[in-house]
Amino acid sequence: MSAETRRPEDRGPSGARRPGPSEALIRTGLPSAEDLERVRPSAERLTHGAVAVLECFQRIPCDPCASSCHHGAIAAFADINDLPSMDAERCNGCGLCVARCPGLAIFIVDEHHAPGEALIKLAYEFLPLPARDQVVTALDRAGREVGQARVVRVQRPKEKTDTPVVWITVPKDLAWTVRHIKVEVSHGA
């Protein structure tokens, strides 16, 4: 895209240019491959373990991700409408920002959690919460069932109104596909 054809939302933090959301995303709510490529940490960084992936593609008046990161990995916003700007080198994958993002748009991905297995930390605001070691259905961004995930940890917030974060492991090739889980509600008698 040439500079002339860029939309006004193309401006990222402190004027840095980053394309706005794709037409497909605006029409369907599903990010395109190009949208996703833009927020994917470098292959080099991925070899160093857990890192935050900010699936936030549209300029909206919102900035808690920046203030929640104590490692300076998400730059402070010059304009509250900026897209978040991520320095993956400074991110240690702690996941603090995951629970703080009102858009539930941040995921932690560790491609090298175990041989052939990736770890994903995601915000989960549904009941019941899964239990540790429970096997749950793994869903993609369109809510399609794409496999199974094992729950390795459930971070329950101190305040009832805060967001729980669920850690799951999935086969490595699903690290960039799985973004939600379905926890079976036991139906009793």
Partner: peptide, 23 residues
């Protein structure tokens, strides 16, 4: 409308829970 009017992060939340959005 031909486009989603609300914030796309909200749209993503309902989409991954399996709800289609028919613009």
């Amino acid at each position: 409308a031909p486009r989603i009017g609300g914030y796309l992060v909200h749209a993503a939340k309902v989409r991954r829970a399996g709800v289609p959005i028919l613009t």
